[in-house]
Design a binder for these strands. Structure first.
Lengths: 140, 140
DNA sequence: GAGTCAATCTTGAATGATTCAAGAAAACAT
DNA sequence: ATGTTTTCTTGAATCATTCAAGATTGACTC
């Protein structure tokens, strides 16, 4: 898990290379699963100034280009990660909101067969595990 | 899937029986997976008037009492259902937002074993299937 | 390297869902 | 019936996100 080159990542996806975009990708490398506010902060530390709106725009563009993945655990604002394309899931800590990646035990496309899909055509199974993170378990 | 008696449901959970609560439970019976607005509308048709805030309060009380379950699919406001306690999941239509229940194929507590849980203690696995509902598939 | 045009960023306001807060009304126990 | 506590009403606040208009910038062409 070492840093991809933001510029290469953008070029490779046919996206313009701008300072805000590079900074946001950089922020995502350092802070996987961060929310918009946090990413904006980190990007600002890098650039001096970026509007929050720009960060929203960047994240939207990156998400639409398939460079980042957006997740929205219940009760949390949207979070973003660069790890994309593989089928991985997330554990969310009920007490502090920490999130970690989890590879599904079942296989490459886990849980994709539900017993009765009610006539729906399913293209993705999103799994969210809920529990308590190591830190919160210790303190309790 | 026939209607539970709202009054019995409330009494059984140690909750006061009020007109708004009975009406919201009634609305939930008729409209599983409905969002707050919709439930408030339906409850109003029943009672004449209820404040939206009251509906929020009722849903919170019912959720905390374990009488209803709250789900929040990405991109949607919260939705509520009376079916609770069993381990069932949901399919969400990407185009119209329709939601249906899905029993997991794996077993009673499906997907509860993730390969590597990063030290988290997991107590629930929430699965959201994404796809297209029968209606939206037909029209396309 | 300058000119051009579309894409992107800035600023400021709007929206939607949800929560907070204070007082009025209603439910339940006695 | 009466009192106490919970719940409902009304009105405002908050948070995350989106919309909109104009200024700036990236990348392509000459």
């Amino acid at each position: 898990m070492h840093a991809a080159d933001p510029v290469a990542l953008l070029r490779g996806s046919g996206l313009r290379v701008t300072r805000p975009r590079v900074a946001v990708i950089h922020a995502l490398e350092q802070h996987p699963h961060a929310e918009v506010d946090r990413l904006a902060e980190v990007a600002r530390a890098d650039l001096g100034a970026v509007s929050t709106q720009a960060v929203y725009d960047v994240l939207r563009a990156l998400t639409e280009a398939g460079v980042v993945r957006r997740i929205e655990p219940a009760g949390s604002p949207a979070r973003f990660e660069l790890r994309v394309g593989d089928n991985h899931h997330h554990v969310v800590c009920r007490s502090c909101g920490a999130i970690a990646d989890v590879d599904c035990a079942v296989g490459a496309r886990p849980c994709l067969d539900a017993s009765d899909t009610q006539g729906f055509v399913i293209d993705e199974a999103e799994v969210t595990y809920w529990g308590t993170c190591p830190d919160c378990t210790q303190i309790h």
